[in-house]
Design a protein around this nucleic acid. Structure first.
Length: 474
RNA sequence: GGCCCCAUCGUCUAGUGGACCAGGACGCCAGGUUUUCAUCCUGGAAACAGGGGUUCAAUUCCCCUUGGGGUCACCA
């Protein structure tokens, strides 16, 4: 069981789309496992499908991984390893563990349909297995279209999954799989196997959707006398309707969450908790804590539904924990360039938002006149007359203040004016007048930030809105 | 359909035979603190899919049923 080999894991995305949230989660678990065990984390780009692969997706994947802080120790592309695959394909052919198949796609499709209607698992009949080596070579030489198939033995095969325990498949039900297509290009199950073994991967940690690929890959390893790595299949990340989280339009890519202003700390924390949990009740954890506690044995078996609410909570919690200076740097990317942010502003709103994307809205009153419906000025069951009265009182207080009002001073003065009266009835209309927002920093903070002149301007504006409202009503 | 995986509150989960009339968190609801909103605090509603076993004792072990998911390409 115990191996003295250094732990080596990999994430093997195919660059056929932007970095998927599920891929990011798998990458994270591999990375955590590597870091927790002093091992290596390898990034392998699976770009054997020239048609679908695109350099721009490869860049997006690398960018996303880096953003999360999942640094890799080694990197390679499968497209650069053709000669290696060719070599092993040749070995398999020479040892008669694989053979040429000349069946056409149409024939194959027909067989598949027949089996399906008979209620059988569709698999290749093995027709070309019996073609003699001489005849096969001759036909290949002649240029007949052909693929290469692995002779899958009709035996039961079992492997131990680190998360699920023993899993068994029947080779007889799998049939001879294609490992290289017409033209010689090697296929997924084959290249994965070659690369995992040659790069000395010790633990293959991947999504549950690969469980059924595992026996095929093990058969290839056995045919080549390869040492078989350990496997661990992670639970799926699901949509709220429990389907595989793929078709959720834009919200399946990591980039979507980056652009909405989720922090990498929150993303890592949240993604780690999709299928994993520490021994105790801790939830808000930084990456070092997670590495320290990470254990494949504590990974869940069942799929986890992606919860936007919980993600928001993680993000809000991490935002509050974050240093203002650090946050300020990130925040600048989410507001217009002309806005000059400062630490006080960030501090005033960071506990009030779930993602940085909201900054544009919640910080707007610092930079432009608020825009709101007159009715918003009313607190609970106040009528417009009362609002006007109270706002005028506040106006007088501000009017009497010095030019550079200090938060504490204006706070004292306003509270003095309110006296035994209702604080809400005074402060709510004032807050709306100043910020236009129901959830904003306190009026005192805003007045200090805006200054006397601007504050008065906004109170007058509110008063004007009330007049319009009254005219409209009569 | 064949094969494979899975099954605790709406959601993420704790729980590895007795300490569980099932604990935490998100969300939700109700109170409270605070100078208004938010924060914060307290409380509440909310789950072991069903049926058989095994055992002195099952959420926990076994079997069946049901349900959900995955996979069956010359994609990865």
């Amino acid at each position: 069981m115990s191996s003295d080999r250094k732990v080596r894991v990999r994430i093997a995305p195919s660059p056929t789309g932007p970095l998927h949230i599920g891929t990011a989660r798998t990458a994270l678990f591999n990375w955590l496992f590597a870091r927790a065990n002093g091992g290596d984390f390898i990034l392998r780009i699976e770009d054997t499908d020239e048609e679908r692969s695109d350099k721009k997706f490869e860049e997006d994947i690398e960018k996303g991984l880096k953003w999360l802080g999942l640094n890799w120790d080694e990197f390679y592309r499968q497209s650069e390893r053709d000669s290696i695959y060719e070599e092993y394909l040749g070995k398999l052919l020479a040892s008669q563990k694989a053979y040429y198949c000349f069946c056409t796609k149409d024939e194959l499709e027909e067989m598949r349909q027949t089996m399906l209607t008979q209620g059988l698992a569709p698999k290749y009949s093995g027709k070309c297995r019996s073609t003699s080596t001489e005849e096969a070579s001759a036909r290949v030489g002649k240029g007949d279209p052909h693929v290469i198939r692995l002779k899958v033995p009709e035996v039961k095969i079992e492997f131990k999954d680190l998360i699920r325990g023993s899993i068994e498949f029947d080779g007889a039900l799998i049939g001879d799989i294609i490992i290289a297509r017409d033209g010689g290009a090697p296929l997924y199950n084959f290249v994965v196997t070659i690369d995992d073994v040659l790069s000395e991967i010790t633990h293959v940690i991947r999504g549950e959707d690969h469980i059924s690929n595992t026996p095929k890959q093990i058969f290839i390893m056995q045919a080549l006398d390869f040492k078989i790595p350990k496997f661990a299949h992670l639970p799926m990340i699901l949509n709220p309707n429990k389907s595989k989280m793929s078709k959720r339009s834009d919200s399946v890519s990591l980039d979507y969450y980056i652009k909405r202003g989720y922090t990498k700390e929150a993303m890592i924390n949240f993604l780690a908790f999709m299928g994993w949990h520490p021994k105790d009740d801790r939830e808000i954890m930084d990456v070092d804590e997670i590495i320290k506690e990470f254990d494949l044995g504590r990974v869940q078996k069942g799929g986890a539904i992606f919860s936007d609410e919980k993600l928001d909570w993680f993000n809000n919690s991490h935002l509050k924990k974050m240093d203002n200076k650090e946050l300020l740097k990130i925040a600048e990317n989410f507001v217009p360039k002309s806005w000059k942010l400062n630490s006080a502003m960030i501090d005033a709103v960071k506990g009030r938002i779930n993602h940085l994307d909201e900054l544009k809205e919640s910080l707007s009153f610092y930079f432009k006149l608020p825009d709101y419906e007159p009715a918003t000025l009313r607190w609970q069951d106040m009528n417009f007359g009362e609002v006007e009265l109270n706002l005028n009182k506040m106006k007088d207080v501000v009017n009497e203040a010095e030019n550079d009002i200090k938060k504490k001073d204006i706070e004292n003065k306003i509270l003095e004016e309110i006296g035994e009266g209702s604080k809400g009835e005074m402060l709510w209309p004032l807050r709306i007048a100043l910020s236009g927002q129901e959830n904003s920093p306190s009026p005192f903070e805003i007045i200090e930030a805006l200054g006397k002149k601007e504050s008065l301007k906004r109170i007058n504006l509110a008063l004007q809105k009330l007049e319009v409202k009254e005219t409209y009503e009569t």
